[in-house]
Measured scan of single mutants.
Amino acid sequence: MEVRTIKVFTTVDNINLHTQVVDMSMTYGQQFGPTYLDGADVTKIKPHNSHEGKTFYVLPNDDTLRVEAFEYYHTTDPSFLGRYMSALNHTKKWKYPQVNGLTSIKWADNNCYLATALLTLQQIELKFNPPALQDAYYRARAGEAANFCALILAYCNKTVGELGDVRETMSYLFQHANLDSCKRVLNVVCKTCGQQQTTLKGVEAVMYMGTLSYEQFKKGVQIPCTCGKQATKYLVQQESPFVMMSAPPAQYELKHGTFTCASEYTGNYQCGHYKHITSKETLYCIDGALLTKSSEYKGPITDVFYKENSYTTTIK
């Protein structure tokens, strides 16, 4: 009895394709271990004539594949690729409408935090270190965002349907971005203890939790000093293409032309909904596939993004 075979390709990165001759009487799992086709788990399936010449994702289970996976995804987590594939199996079914010149995501599976993050990423200057993220990001900007969303979920250790947080998501993504040249110098002034300067680099240099107003941050924000008295913390120097200011959701007025974009969060910790506000020729609110415009805006804002380049204080 002759062994019926077909020729397929296996890959971990969709760049390096490895030619395989597979036995049609055995499952993919018996031949390769966990195997995925377009995100779908085909591990328990036997090869079919229609699979001839198709590319299958496999887990990096030998040295060659491990090197290829690390170079593309910059992670050695053995569960990463499987999590990416199972997320992709959902995100490829989502709709990605162009809204006001940006790629958004039609609401499904509690994905409003991903839509808000995706919209924000198209408006701030950011370059990702893992080629996987950078490639998928370019495709997302062009309207094909399924891979990018699935990668975000995998890097953030999230599953489809789980509630997510924009600030946490951005923080994970910033860790995989090139923020080497970003720098922030802060000064804390206390009447009792004097003053202390701190220099922050990388992710810490672009994120701040405690106030939404970048102007206020430049002037000074009140913080408790270690001595128990009130101290003032203010920005001395900022070198970065953008800054992200966050605070627990509270009524906040966004003035046209003073910011790049913002995240609105309605609801409580267990259950809520994100919308995205962007400042173009007027203010726009993007909620999944829905767009509304207004000249002014007041609502429960939790993150505001500002364009920056270089700032030095005039406070002496």
Rank of each mutant, 00 (worst) to 15 (best):
V12I: 11
Q238C: 01
Y214N: 02
F56N: 02
D135T: 08
L119H: 06
L118W: 05
G299R: 06
C190L: 02
S171I: 11
Y269P: 15
F56W: 04
L153W: 06
A69M: 15
F128T: 03
Y306P: 00
Q98S: 09
F56M: 10
Q238E: 01
P224Q: 14
L254K: 02
N111G: 00
Q196M: 12
Q122T: 03
Q237W: 08
S171K: 14
T19I: 14
S79P: 00
P130T: 09
E2W: 08
T278K: 00
T192N: 13
F217P: 01
V58E: 06
V166K: 04
H74T: 02
N89G: 12
K275E: 01
V188G: 07
V12M: 08
K183E: 07
V206W: 02
T266S: 12
P224S: 14
S181W: 12
E253Q: 10
Y252N: 05
Q251E: 14
G161P: 02
T159K: 15
I315R: 15
T211K: 02
A205Q: 03
F128W: 14
T76E: 09
D135V: 08
Y137N: 03
A247L: 03
Q237V: 11
M207H: 07
V189E: 13
K280T: 09
A145R: 02
Y297H: 07
I124T: 02
Q230W: 14
P47D: 03
E144P: 05
Q20C: 11
Y28P: 06
T27M: 12
Y269C: 15
T64W: 07
H273A: 00
A177P: 02
Q197W: 06
K127G: 07
N129K: 12
G267R: 07
G267N: 08
K7F: 11
H18G: 06
H51N: 08
D62Y: 06
P130A: 10
G39Y: 10
D287Q: 00
R141T: 11
T76Y: 10
Q122Y: 04
K201S: 13
T75Q: 09
G82P: 15
D303Q: 00
E68C: 05
L59S: 12
Y72D: 06
P248C: 09
Q20K: 14
V160D: 01
L17D: 07
Y96E: 01
Q197G: 04
Y284I: 15
S104I: 04
K158Q: 05
T103L: 05
V221W: 04
G288H: 04
T27H: 12
E71H: 08
N89F: 12
R139L: 11
H90N: 08
S295T: 12
S310H: 15
S240C: 05
T260K: 06
V67C: 15
T258C: 08
T232P: 01
T43G: 13
E239Y: 09
L17M: 12
A69G: 06
K183A: 07
K93L: 11
D135P: 04
I301W: 00
V243N: 00
A289M: 10
N16T: 09
A247V: 03
Q222T: 11
Y73L: 05
C271W: 12
F217E: 01
R4N: 12
V99K: 11
Y113S: 07
C225G: 01
V221T: 08
I223A: 13
V206P: 01
K275R: 15
P131H: 03
T169W: 00
N49K: 12
N178E: 11
T91P: 05
P248K: 10
I223D: 07
Q196T: 13
K106Q: 11
R139W: 10
C193F: 03
A108I: 06
N309P: 14
N147D: 14
Y72H: 13
A142H: 15
A145L: 03
Q238F: 02
H51Q: 10
I105T: 04
P131M: 05
Y73V: 04
H48G: 14
E125N: 13
T232Y: 09
F9Y: 12
C156S: 09
A108G: 04
F70W: 11
L212T: 06
L186W: 11
K7S: 12
K158T: 02
N187M: 15
N14G: 15
S240T: 04
S25R: 12
D77I: 03
K54L: 15
K218N: 02
S25P: 05
Y72P: 05
Y311L: 10
E168N: 09
Y172A: 11
F32W: 08
T10I: 09
T226L: 10
A108Q: 09
L186G: 03
S246I: 00
L179A: 01
K183C: 08
V21C: 14
T232V: 14
C227F: 00
K183M: 10
Y155H: 02
T192D: 13
F259W: 01
L235P: 02
P249H: 01
S171P: 00
E2F: 09
Y137M: 10
L121S: 07
P131D: 01
R66L: 12
L290F: 13
L291W: 15
V3T: 12
T211A: 05
P248N: 08
G82T: 14
T10F: 10
T302L: 00
G299Y: 00
K93F: 11
G164S: 05
Y137A: 08
Q30A: 13
E144M: 08
T169Y: 01
D109A: 05
T312Q: 14
L163S: 11
E281G: 08
P241R: 06
D135N: 10
A140R: 01
N110Q: 02
V160N: 05
L290P: 00
K191N: 13
P34Y: 10
S279I: 01
Y84R: 04
K275G: 02
Q237K: 14
G210Q: 01
Y113H: 07
P248R: 13
Q216P: 00
T19R: 11
T169N: 02
V206D: 01
M244K: 08
F242P: 03
Y96M: 04
D109W: 03
S279D: 14
G101T: 06
Q195C: 13
I15F: 13
I152K: 01
Y311F: 10
A231L: 01
K54D: 11
S246K: 01
K191E: 15
C261F: 01
H256N: 08
E253N: 10
H90L: 13
Q195P: 11
V3W: 13
Y57P: 05
G210Y: 02
T91Y: 03
P47V: 08
V185Y: 03
I45A: 12
I15T: 12
C182K: 04
P241C: 05
N100D: 10
F56S: 04
L114S: 03
N309M: 09
R66A: 13
F32I: 12
R167T: 03
L254P: 01
F9S: 09
T5N: 14
Y274P: 00
L133A: 03
P78L: 10
T314R: 15
K95F: 09
F174K: 01
R141M: 13
L291Q: 13
I124F: 06
I6N: 06
K229P: 02
K46L: 14
E253Y: 08
C285Y: 04
Y57I: 10
A205V: 02
D303M: 03
R141E: 08
D180Q: 12
T169F: 03
L17G: 05
T19K: 11
K46G: 10
C182N: 02
K316R: 15
G101Q: 06
P249D: 02
L65N: 08
Y155R: 02
C271V: 07
F9I: 09
T103M: 05
Q196E: 10
L102Q: 04
V304M: 05
L126Q: 02
N110V: 04
E125I: 05
H273F: 00
Q222L: 12
D23N: 11
A177T: 10
R184A: 15
A69H: 11
E162P: 00
Y84D: 05
T198M: 13
Y137Q: 07
Q230H: 07
S294F: 13
C225F: 00
L254S: 00
G39H: 09
G39V: 08
Y269Q: 15
A136I: 03
L163H: 09
K127N: 12
L126G: 04
M245S: 01
K218L: 04
E2R: 11
S294V: 15
H276I: 06
L121P: 03
C112R: 03
Y311P: 14
D13H: 04
T292G: 09
P300N: 14
E239R: 10
D77L: 05
V243Y: 03
N178C: 10
K158R: 06
M170Y: 04
K229Q: 14
N110C: 05
I124M: 04
P248V: 06
S240A: 05
M244N: 01
K127R: 14
D63N: 09
L81P: 08
D303F: 00
V42D: 05
F80W: 04
K92F: 04
K218R: 06
D180V: 07
T5E: 10
G161F: 01
T302R: 00
Y297F: 13
T278L: 09
L200S: 10
K255C: 11
C285N: 07
E281Y: 00
Q134V: 09
L235I: 10
T226Q: 14
K255S: 08
E2T: 11
